[in-house]
């Protein structure tokens, strides 16, 4: 980390999966810090636990031991509703398989986190401003002409851009991206990474990106590698 304040801090994270009698220890004392506005790439071989660590960081999954601090506060001590709120407002997820809701069109998919965030009366009162924000975001991502299309009618790159727009609609402090280019051809992957890098610069958001692609990882400020259940530093922006 490079002198910025720590936003997300994972300390001594341990996680074991049990499949019948077999136990697989995926994380054994992993430590990771993500600073405010920092772009961190988490690499590692397949099955090394990258996605698990990302999910623990985003509170989608719990760890067996260790602690997750967000803004200096221990999230395990948060109430359930505060965790939901935090996940909704402070984290944005981008998945390898996009995970868009097939029944909703592009605009609706992007607006969904905003709707989750807003109480019903707020959703009614602030529907127009949120819609305007979503339209601006989609325009910026080059999807202005695809608003009423459903995910099945979009290409892979377009779907991933919609997923990014959805992740950004609530202006989260951290963007958690799980191999966002893994399902795309190199050229489209490059476009998506350019987009992430641009947004990172513009919005000064922290990004924790999981990838096993060295080219993608190289776009980050800092690269860390997960091996044998522990996080090891690989490089920093200064060393690159």
């Amino acid at each position: 980390m490079t002198g910025r304040g720590v936003l997300l801090e994972l300390t001594d994270i341990r996680k074991t999966f049990r499949t019948g009698p077999a136990e697989i220890q995926v994380l054994c004392g992993a430590n990771l810090q993500v600073g405010r506005g920092e772009f961190v790439a988490l690499t590692g071989s397949s099955g090394s636990g990258k996605s698990t660590l990302l999910h623990i960081a985003g509170m989608l999954e719990t760890c067996d031991s260790g602690s997750v601090l967000f803004g200096g506060e221990k999230v395990s001590e948060f109430s359930r509703s505060r965790r939901h709120n935090l996940r909704n407002r402070s984290f944005g997820f981008v998945f390898q398989l996009y995970h868009l809701l097939p029944e909703l069109n592009v605009l609706e998919n992007v607006l969904l986190p905003a709707m989750v965030a807003a109480p019903w009366y707020d959703a009614l009162l602030r529907a127009r401003p949120r819609k305007k924000e979503a339209l601006e975001l989609l325009e910026e991502l080059g999807l202005a002409g695809r608003l009423s299309h459903r995910p099945a009618e979009l290409s892979g790159g377009e779907r991933q851009r919609v997923a990014i727009a959805r992740a950004l609609i609530n202006k989260p402090a951290v963007l958690l991206a799980d191999e966002p280019t893994g399902n795309l051809d190199p050229r489209t992957g490059q476009v998506i990474m350019d987009l992430l890098a641009r947004l990172h610069t513009q919005l000064n958001q922290s990004i924790l990106l999981v990838t096993h692609d060295a080219v993608v990882a190289n776009r980050a400020d800092r690269i860390v590698r997960l091996a044998d259940g522990r996080v090891e530093p690989v490089s920093t922006a200064e060393s690159k």
């Binding site: 985003g58 939901h84 709120n85 909704n88 995970h99 868009l100 809701l101 969904l112 986190p113 989750v116």
Partner: peptide, 11 residues
């Protein structure tokens, strides 16, 4: 979809 809704903050 349930996973997605929960990921974006649905309780």
């Amino acid at each position: 979809d349930i996973g997605i809704i929960k990921a974006i903050g649905g309780s």
